[in-house]
């Protein structure tokens, strides 16, 4: 795309025509609803009419002690949910990828498939299956622990406020660990053999080779995985809803922004839906995710060193 030498050129219509379908579809199903939500959050229904109230909904959400308590609780839980994924899912994903890419591992295709399969399962199946596994009444978890004499370690994890969110986080990790594993695995495979051979000639092998050669080369992939995890976690809803319901029990211990949004927007049981406050929450979720992605794009990604072979 060099522009030197050509001062005048014809309008290149074909670019617009080729872009049009994607732009139109994307605008219709993503951009317009997004702005619709932002707009809805600036209104409030008073006497069956939508009245413009400016940022009043946001003031209620962050200023009213009850709304803000629920909001910060949900944000805090959401952050913990994200931390679990960053601390467990991604390091384990890298570990599995490193093991899988080892040429000496047998049955690697089997392991790869087995670890990846949960990713393609529906949230409903995963939530329901784990709920049954962990059920104190019919679950196999208490029996399995009993078989090795550790029954005392069993607790109704999903029903205890102090464990429920961590348990759900780990279930989600179990489901999605295949994605970082596959991305890192692909990145590891794309490292040219010459680089590794050169390293071996210099006496860098085994673990040292992983830390000094491979890891720096896959850092951009790790960055992408982190940001995907961030966006996915802060948009999460399905798993909590299918296992704990919209009230995100016990005692709101598993309430994340998605379930808080759902309860507010659509209402729950006797609570009527409030699309305006719901949109305010959705807008804040959008801003939080936007902020996170921006920090990554401008603060981190530009500083990552890339290597070309």
């Amino acid at each position: 795309m060099s522009t030197t030498g050509i001062s005048k050129r014809r309008v290149r219509w074909h670019i617009a025509i080729f872009l049009a379908p994607a732009v139109l579809v994307y605008t219709a199903i993503m951009i317009i609803p997004l702005f619709g939500t932002l707009q809805l959050s600036l209104f409030r229904e008073i006497d069956q009419k939508q009245i413009f109230v400016g940022l009043e909904n946001f003031r209620t959400l962050l200023g009213d002690p009850r709304w803000s308590e629920t909001f910060w609780n949900a944000l805090g839980n959401n952050s913990w949910f994200f931390v679990i994924h960053m601390l467990v899912q991604n390091p384990l994903g890298i570990l599995f990828a490193a093991l899988l890419s080892s040429p000496r591992l047998r049955f690697s295709a089997f392991y790869r498939t087995a670890i990846f399969v949960p990713t393609i399962l529906s949230f409903v199946i995963v939530g329901f299956a784990w709920k049954l596994i962990l059920s104190p009444l019919w679950g196999i978890a208490p029996n399995m622990l009993d078989a090795v004499g550790l029954k005392s370690l069993f607790a109704p994890w999903l029903g205890k406020p102090e464990y429920a969110l961590t348990t759900l986080g780990l279930i989600s990790v179990w489901q999605f660990i295949g994605i970082p594993m596959m991305l890192i695995y692909a990145a590891l495979l794309s490292i040219p053999d010459e680089v590794l051979e050169a390293a071996e000639c210099d006496g860098i092998t085994g673990m040292q080779q992983f830390w000094k050669i491979k890891l720096p080369l896959i850092l951009p992939s790790i960055g992408i995985i982190s940001i995907l995890t961030f966006v996915g976690n802060f948009n999460a809803f399905d798993l909590i809803y299918t296992t704990q319901g919209a009230l995100a029990g016990p005692n709101y211990a598993t309430d994340i922004l998605g379930t808080f949004l759902y309860r507010t927007f659509f209402g729950f049981q006797l609570q009527l839906g409030d699309p305006n406050m719901g949109s305010a929450i959705a807008s804040l979720m959008f801003l939080i995710i936007l902020a996170g992605v921006s920090i990554y794009l401008f603060g981190i990604q530009t500083r990552l060193r890339r290597y070309q072979f």
């Binding site: 059920s135 104190p136 009444l137 069993f154 607790a155 109704p156 205890k160 016990p250």
Partner: peptide
């Protein structure tokens, strides 16, 4: 209540 009632759901109770 039964063991682990904290994680017992409504259908669990019905079945029980």
């Amino acid at each position: 209540l039964g063991d682990g009632f904290e994680a017992q759901t409504y259908p669990d109770s019905q079945n029980m």
